[in-house]
């Protein structure tokens, strides 16, 4: 790991001035669009993601043969989302990979027994990429699913974590920290049940540190869950104020 850029300054601050356990600023909004059944917009630092959900509807094509719910995802990244222009918004290996991972994590959260022979489409569009793209996409997808009224076991949220040279775990990795070559761990979790729906890591960790880094990511997940939950409640108060549901939450 020689020559690796130091992620943590001597004062214990990260490159963007955060402390090791701090998340980036999160802003979100549900019900951005009219046409989809559910939609959400999420901003985590400079990473900005739009998600739309269509369904549940009758499964199309040859997918109708199975009895289970089909969760169809698409991950695409706007061509202007990165500092270098991307040539295509989707179809590259990275977006195929993210699409599969989204499917995996969402399948763990959706109450599939309620939607036999149906299909749920989840489309994610990254408008600005600044690290933790998968995690923010999944969080936005969760909000969009809730906006669409699809039953979930619980919030499925994702968070990234890394490890500084001095073995201090870092939460919510930004793009600059990603490219400076530290290890990266992404966890998608069902925080209340303390279940992990999806885990991915790159670079290398010593097995002794893995536990603490996972715990850091889980703590991040719990924090994000609280933020999302507050956002959902506020949205409900907002849309339900006419019918006086707001006070129920």
């Amino acid at each position: 790991m020689a020559g690796r850029f130091e992620l943590l300054s001597e004062q214990g601050l990260r490159l963007d001035g955060r402390r090791p356990h701090e998340l980036r600023h999160i802003k979100c909004k549900m019900g951005v669009f009219e046409q989809p059944d559910g939609s959400a917009y999420m901003e985590q630092g400079n990473t900005k993601v739009l998600a739309a959900v269509y369904g549940p509807h009758q499964a199309k094509g040859k997918k109708t043969e199975t009895n289970d719910v089909i969760i169809n995802c698409q991950y695409s990244q706007a061509t202007f989302s990165t500092s270098e222009r991307k040539n295509r918004p989707r179809g590259d290996r990275k977006s195929q990979e993210f699409k599969m991972y989204l499917q995996q994590a969402l399948s763990a959260a959706i109450k599939s027994e309620l939607y036999p022979r149906s299909q749920i489409d989840v489309y994610v569009e990254v408008l600005q990429a600044d690290g933790a793209n998968y995690a923010v996409s999944l969080n936005a997808a969760t909000l969009a699913l809730i906006d669409a009224g699809i039953c979930l076991n619980e919030f499925v949220v994702a968070c990234t974590a890394s490890l500084s040279k001095s073995n201090i775990p870092l939460t919510d990795i930004s793009n600059i920290e990603e490219v400076s070559g530290g290890p990266k761990l992404t966890v998608a979790a069902l925080p209340t049940a303390e279940k992990i729906a999806f885990l991915e890591m790159s670079e290398r960790f010593h097995i002794d540190h893995l536990e603490t880094v996972i715990e850091t990511a889980m703590a991040g997940c719990r924090e994000i869950r609280d933020i999302l939950e507050a956002a959902v409640k506020e949205h409900l108060i907002h849309i339900g104020s006419a019918a006086d549901w707001g006070r129920v939450c």
Binding site: A51, N72, Q74, D121, Y123
Partner: peptide, 15 residues
């Protein structure tokens, strides 16, 4: 010019 029809607009634009 480059135009991308996002699937967010309608599921028909998928892929």
């Amino acid at each position: 010019f480059f135009v991308d029809c996002s699937a967010n607009a309608t599921p028909e634009f998928e892929g």
